[in-house]
Design a protein around this nucleic acid. Structure first.
Lengths: 243, 243
DNA sequence: GAATATTTGTCCGTATGTATA
DNA sequence: ATATACATACGGACAAATATT
């Protein structure tokens, strides 16, 4: 290993990361962010470093800067506690689901296996878009047993996508999630109103009912600039403290 | 119904997502993936759809295709159970930590607040790179109380980054994590040996000791093509079943 | 409307640690 | 080891846009 090197670079990137965290966690009160002068003082950094950090955040789309006025946070992240199954719970926004397509097809091997269907059975395919206020939040492809398709009307009154199943009479039990970071392809970029190549979080999930029977196997692609996962983890398995 | 979904390519994207999941979960036995003909049958799809799906996965860097030979999975994801604090646990790879820089600076407001330091106090800054075998896995910036810097020698025998603190005599308690999807900037892209703009998972974490005192506040940028988070979640807070 | 203060944008020169030849 | 180039950080000065008095 190369010991105690006193490398000097990276100040701007560190300030960027700390600033991003502060903005996301809403450490600054409403209105414009602190000016460059104040940030220089807070971070013990030169104006150049502060400006480089802010420029990177602007390129990320997190802040907007206007000459003569100040720097403003542009998108608010939705805190998503990752300890239970739930949809977004943004303050002051209306959550709605827009069905993009509903169809049936022969279940692919993994779909059949996950849903507990016999090989080659038919399954329902639902594509929908979840919108916060008037901004797209995530696009989802859900594979379900065909019977579920008859209950899509329940969605109208559901505050949550999963409430659809509860409205249809199914209790919801444990579910497995796999999360990855991917880039938006052209199609999902247009759906989510982000540039192609924007960062997304991909959730692959299997929702089960109270008896452990599969209800849906789905892929949800969430706008990376709108979601932050939160969890409180113990060092060892077993002891648990959840936020 | 929204006309946007009726556009061509929906089938290819669905096959892509299912194939990606199957590859990541290692559903296919070792060696090359099934050929196009077999995939056409499995997914009840045309050759065009199968080839489009494989092309997208190739562009993602997940598979390599060789004419006359077959399609091969190129990177194996590290399953990261998100129920406790731990480093990567890849099968057959050696995990090592490369210190990039160790220094001290005045703690920025958020760092001081998180670490429980008085405003303006000094803190240690450690930048390190975690490597699996010979491939970079994540780059991290860790802010620590200055005393910790004296114990960096413990890292030599630590199988895990956090074991550093345990070796130094600190029990590790609960810790808070925030996870986001971001893009690699030029600097971190070079460190992680990925193209600029590649997807990353950003972990912001606060590690505490057994008494709840902060040990480190860190930002870890993990290669998106190498990590998948796993969790088993209940519908309601409280009931817990962890994978 | 006019004067002034504030804030970001642009430019300069200098110092220093890092990397390369 | 020496010299060079390069990126990064610092400090300053000024311009342009906006807000305030």
């Amino acid at each position: 290993m190369d010991p105690r090197t006193r490398r000097r670079g990276g100040a701007a990137r560190r300030v960027r990361d700390l600033l991003r965290a502060a903005i996301i966690h809403e450490e600054y009160s409403a209105g414009p962010l602190p000016g460059e002068a104040e940030l220089m003082l807070a971070f013990s950094a030169s104006r150049q470093v502060v400006r480089d950090a802010l420029a990177m955040l602007r390129d990320e789309g997190l802040v907007r800067r206007v000459q003569g006025t100040g720097t403003f946070s542009v998108t608010s992240k939705v805190r998503h506690p990752f300890n239970r199954l739930h949809g977004p719970d943004p303050e002051g926004y209306v959550v709605s689901h827009r069905l993009l397509s509903v169809s049936q097809e022969r279940a692919a091997p993994r779909v059949a296996e996950r849903l507990g269907l016999p090989p080659g059975a038919r399954c329902g395919v639902i594509e929908y878009l979840t919108v916060l206020g008037d901004e797209p939040y995530y696009a989802c492809t859900a594979y379900v047993p065909v019977e579920i398709l008859d209950h899509l009307g329940c969605l109208r009154t559901a505050p949550d996508w999963y409430a659809l199943y509860e409205r249809a009479g199914h209790e919801i039990g444990v579910n497995d999630q796999a999360v990855e970071a991917i880039l938006a392809d052209e199609h999902v970029a247009e759906l989510l109103d982000v540039p192609t190549g924007a960062p997304l979080m991909l959730f692959e999930r299997l929702v089960r009912d109270g008896a452990g029977r599969p209800l849906e196997y789905a892929f949800a692609r969430v706008r990376g600039d709108r979601i932050a996962l939160y969890a409180r983890l113990p060092r060892r398995r077993g002891t648990i403290g959840v936020q």
